[in-house]
Design a protein around this nucleic acid. Structure first.
Length: 357
DNA sequence: CTAGATGATTGGAG
DNA sequence: CTCCAATCATCTAG
């Protein structure tokens, strides 16, 4: 690969530092030549250097070679070294290290916490588990979403790592390229290791700013995924039919006091494959909605009452239909102390009374 | 698309 | 803490 003259030119402007390692010997011209001839030579060389960027690559290459072999080259090189020596002080201290970017650290921490940049497998599932726990103790019933979350997260992680690797590789390639370039240039101009180091730093800074963008967008993606997963309301699923039946069965067979104990709730939760909290929610909703509109639930009440009656009848072997609750209200005939609103007791015997509210 | 159903959340009362 | 009541946000049958 050949260096581009243009690039070399700009580097000459950017980086300047002392150059102890380069040959300092000076041939002091060619001995006895007159001053005019030397001036002429120097003028030629400078002219060639100034115009080298305007030439084609091949031309420039040839010209460069010619310059390298020029008898005045060592002298010119020495002059450059001197100039550099003088200017280096003013440049030093202009840069030097900057503190680690707090935002970058924040992003890194977050990616680590989310299991994106951490260890391969454990991190992801840990984060998913944490998310699941935060969403309010999830049962086995949404394990599908669980794995969905995990799959998406690992997808993000994979993209992240691929991109990161790509950037790193590009960065290394570019750094090598620039190093070669500088090494090549060091034949014609003084370049110190410090200068090279600074160049490398600049490159790394540029690339790490690109990496930061990658990290930022990865964080965003994770946040979106997470919030979707965590917001249970957003992904509300109706309970399956069987679960609803079990809950309704309990509700209507305990219509006079539809407040399952903690143990009962746990039992129901287990049977329905939902959480205790969901059972509580369900009963809370059911009670209030039943109370609000008993008429609407009458049919349902009768159905479940009949079913439990049949079950009871089957269990007791005698098919006595005497107490089959085929008429409305029969389920709540004992009166319902829970159906009292604002301290006022309401009798269930006349459901319409309740509807006044 | 819409109305009603339904699970979850919130704020207040006890 | 539990429960109620209102409300939100989504699901679903039509």
């Amino acid at each position: 690969m050949d260096e581009q003259p243009r690039l070399m030119h700009s580097h000459t402007g950017v980086g300047m530092a002392g150059h102890p390692g380069l040959p300092q010997h000076m041939q002091e011209g060619t001995g006895g030549t007159d001053g005019d001839g030397r001036k002429q030579d120097i003028g030629d060389i400078l002219q060639q250097i100034m115009t080298i960027t305007d030439q084609s690559l091949d031309e420039a290459q040839a010209r460069k070679h010619a310059l390298n072999c020029h008898r005045m080259k060592p002298a010119l090189f020495n002059v450059l070294c001197e100039i550099k020596e003088k200017t280096v002080l003013s440049i030093r201290g202009a840069q030097e290290e900057e503190p680690p970017d707090p935002q970058l650290m924040r992003l890194d921490n977050m990616l680590l916490a989310e299991g994106v940049s951490g260890p391969e497998k454990g991190g992801g599932s840990a984060a998913a588990a944490a998310a699941a726990a935060a969403s309010g103790g999830v049962g086995a019933d949404n394990s599908a979403e669980h794995s969905d979350y995990r799959a998406k997260l690992s997808q993000i992680r994979q993209i992240y790592h691929t991109e990161l690797e790509k950037y790193e590789q590009a960065c290394n390639e570019f750094t090598t390229h620039v190093m070669n370039l500088l090494r090549e240039q060091s034949r014609t101009r003084p370049i110190s290791p410090k200068e090279i180091e600074r160049m490398v730093n600049i490159i790394h800074r540029k690339f790490s700013s690109i990496q930061m963008q990658l990290k930022q967008s990865t964080c965003e993606a994770v946040m979106i995924l997470r919030s979707r997963f965590l917001d249970a309301r957003r992904k509300r699923r109706n309970f399956n039919k069987q679960a609803t039946e079990i809950l309704n069965e309990y509700f209507y067979s305990h219509l006079s006091n539809p407040y399952p104990s903690e143990e009962a709730k746990e039992e129901l939760a287990k049977k329905c494959a939902i959480t205790v909290a969901q059972v509580s929610n369900w009963f809370g909703n059911k009670r209030i909605r039943y109370k609000k509109n008993i008429g609407k639930f009458q049919e349902e009440a009768n159905m479940y009452a009949a079913r439990t009656a049949v079950n009871a009848a089957n269990a007791s072997s005698h098919g006595s239909q005497a107490n089959s609750p085929s008429t409305p209200n029969s389920a709540g005939e004992t009166g319902s102390p829970w159906l009292c609103s604002r301290g006022r007791r309401v009798s269930l015997h006349d459901p319409l009374n309740v509807l006044v509210k």
